[in-house]
């Protein structure tokens, strides 16, 4: 039983990270219909920036995470401005090619700056909390709580502020939003910035129990795509629930089946869910 609860906790941790990454991906897809593979690179850059600030510049953990979020937000905005906006009227395939191009470019850049080695990020939260015979590593609890707080904050922003509502409006009816004087360029930049920041925070939270390396974003972005496809492209609740489903499935299958197959689970779940519900778990469209 204790082992099972440990696995649930692991699943929640993984799921929180996946949800944060998938949220940014689904937001960008919702308003611009871009399958943004470069999102994996925003995640990776966030990890490296936080790592460098902590190990080279001696910046404490939380400020380092904030800086990483800011850097990834800027990288995301620059790629929107320089690449995706130039392709505004291009075929959808071109967006995908450009996104993969940005991913490869940023991976090469990280390779040039930090090398190909694997790095482990330090964390001040190395201990664990013991609760009713369960040993809960502090970093994992931190991940779950931070992800939860960010999701609540994002939700409040989207539902309670005019700017957030404008993002939802643009996802629901682009032309209607333009006719109300909503500035498409501003909303696109803002959405990319939010997505980049969320990805960076996810990476910096996850890095102490994982590793940092230039291609670390690839598997994560693949899984994030699985999540938003099964949750319904552009659906916010779909990204959160989908992230948790994939995280749980990986943790449980990794433990009870074989950890060699854990990366396969996400794709097996995708095939299974799409076979039963081809439209995804949630209705399409941002709500």
């Amino acid at each position: 039983m204790i082992l099972f609860i440990q696995q649930i906790l692991n699943g929640l941790t993984l799921g929180s990270i996946y949800s944060l990454v998938a949220l940014g991906l689904t937001l960008v897809y919702g308003i611009m219909h871009i399958p943004n593979f470069a999102h994996g690179a925003f995640y990776m850059m966030g990890g490296f920036v936080a790592y460098s600030l902590m190990t080279k510049a001696g910046v404490p953990y939380w400020p380092a995470i904030l800086c990483a979020a800011a850097v990834s937000a800027v990288i995301a905005m620059v790629s929107e401005r320089l690449v995706f906006r130039a392709l505004e009227n291009a075929l959808p395939l071109h967006h995908m090619i450009a996104a993969i191009g940005i991913l490869l470019f940023l991976e090469a850049l990280a390779h040039a700056i930090w090398g190909a080695e694997f790095h482990r990020m330090p964390t001040p939260y190395t201990g664990s909390v013991t609760l009713a015979g369960l040993s809960l590593p502090t970093q994992r609890i931190l991940i779950i709580v931070s992800a939860f707080v960010l999701m609540v904050a994002l939700n409040l922003f989207l539902r309670k502020t005019l700017l957030g509502t404008a993002i939802l409006a643009m996802a629901q009816n682009r032309e209607g939003a333009f006719l109300m004087g909503i500035d498409a360029n501003k909303i696109s930049l803002l959405t990319f910035a939010i997505a980049g920041a969320l990805a960076a925070v996810a990476a910096a939270l996850f890095a102490p129990i994982n590793l940092i390396y230039p291609t670390m974003g690839e598997l994560v972005i693949m899984k994030a795509f699985v999540i938003i496809i099964l949750g319904g492209m552009g659906s916010i609740s779909g990204a959160i629930v989908g992230g948790l489903i994939i995280g749980m499935a990986e943790a449980l299958a990794g433990f009870y089946v074989s950890s060699d197959y854990k990366d396969l689970i996400a794709f097996a779940v995708l095939v299974l869910i799409l076979a039963l519900r081809p439209e995804g778990l949630f209705t399409k469209g941002m709500r």
């Binding site: 509502t165 939802l168 409006a169 629901q172 009816n173 032309e175 209607g176 939003a177 006719l179 469209g285």
Partner: peptide
């Protein structure tokens, strides 16, 4: 101000 054909509302808001 243009009120478009087909209304173009934000249906889930």
């Amino acid at each position: 101000v243009h009120c478009p054909e087909g209304r173009k509302l934000f249906p889930a808001l």
